[in-house]
Design a protein around this nucleic acid. Structure first.
Lengths: 207, 207
DNA sequence: ACCTGAACACCGTTCAAGT
DNA sequence: ACCTGAACACCGTTCAAGT
């Protein structure tokens, strides 16, 4: 798809490194995502990567941004009510993260280091401000939503890994595909309902 | 305080290792908490640690459990209403975590690996079940609360570290000690209010 | 602009052997 | 019961030098 694809076979550009690193992540998981392994599978010396990224942390930040970019490029319906937009944004973020192995831990780490992955927070914030909430409240509410989405996705991907390693399959009392999604929806509803109580148009507020 | 304290000067027991490792964590941070460094500061070979812990992950799990144990040994008032008990439990958990450098990331990691640190979830769960909620709902609600507390504490400790490293001091538009606490209380209230809407005694429920 | 080759200062873990 | 000594198979990062 890119202009000079297939012509250069030795030299890589930044985007090539990101793309290959994402493959390594999805095939081998975050613990095996080392600079040396990315370089080896890319047919290059480890030191070559430092031409494109000043550190491993910055490479991880680029991976997180790319994962989120690939999964959240669809614009939500601007005519939908704010709570539907917020719920949709959280679901899109979750889906983007679940599309890559160990992406939840990766995004959480990058987010914790403050290097990137701010786009989801900004979008949730904007939706809440557009809905009439105070900006400072919108920031805190968006942060709470993000903590929930990242935490839930992290738990989910860990259990996937634990089961694939060969441990007992947890508690499959539930069809296994509807179970996790239901608990995600429930937690999300708790927070969205709490936000709704603070809406300027809310009739009554709790302590 | 312990029976043979001060008598043995070469051989360590499990609790000694945990105690010393907590010191290393608090003085040097999680990135520098290596088996080799713990061993060195303890005056012992790295391999000696494997007599007490089968792996680094299990040592980290013991550290997390100890941090939580030290910070949450006070029983909440059993006569208080459920929401006060839940809020108190979340605050105690947060205080326990903020007492040690990088403890949020440590506890989150251990929790993600499923090796320990289940006590806080169990307590929140019990409080909610005692309050009359369905056990399955109580589990999901407790999980949502835990994700929030851990996520918020992780953000907070990262910003502490970022500021101590020498970066610009973020956004000190607020007295800096009341600011973070207020955003924690707000996020916590969002979730608790969402839970309250699901209480059996609630008059009306949202979608 | 992108890469090599070699080095530096580390890791977690295992294992035979000691006391 | 607890530790040593030595090894194995790795890390991230730097830097002069090449093309």
């Amino acid at each position: 798809m890119s202009p000079d694809d297939g012509m250069s076979h030795m030299r890589n550009r930044r985007a090539d490194v990101v793309d290959h690193a994402l493959g390594v992540l999805d095939r081998h998981g975050l613990p095996d995502l080392s600079m040396r392994r990315i370089a080896a599978e890319l047919g290059v010396q480890p030191s070559a990567l430092y031409h494109h990224f000043a550190s491993k942390q910055l490479l991880l930040a680029a991976l997180a941004d790319e994962i989120l970019r690939r999964g959240t490029h669809t614009q939500p319906d601007p005519d939908a009510p704010w709570d539907e937009r917020v719920r949709g944004g959280c679901h899109a973020l979750r889906d983007a993260i679940l599309a890559y192995r160990d992406a939840a831990e990766l995004v959480a780490t990058v987010h914790a280091f403050g290097l990137g992955a701010h786009e989801p927070h900004r979008r949730l914030c904007d939706d809440l401000v557009d809905a009439g909430f105070e900006p400072s409240f919108a920031r805190d509410a968006a942060t709470t939503l993000l903590h929930f989405v990242l935490g839930h996705a992290t738990d989910e991907q860990l259990h996937l890994q634990a089961n694939s390693v060969g441990a007992i399959d947890d508690a499959p009392l539930v069809p296994a595909d509807s179970g996790r999604g239901a608990s995600f929806d429930l937690g999300l509803s708790l927070i969205v309902d709490g936000i709704r109580l603070r809406h300027p148009s809310a009739s009554a507020a709790a302590s």
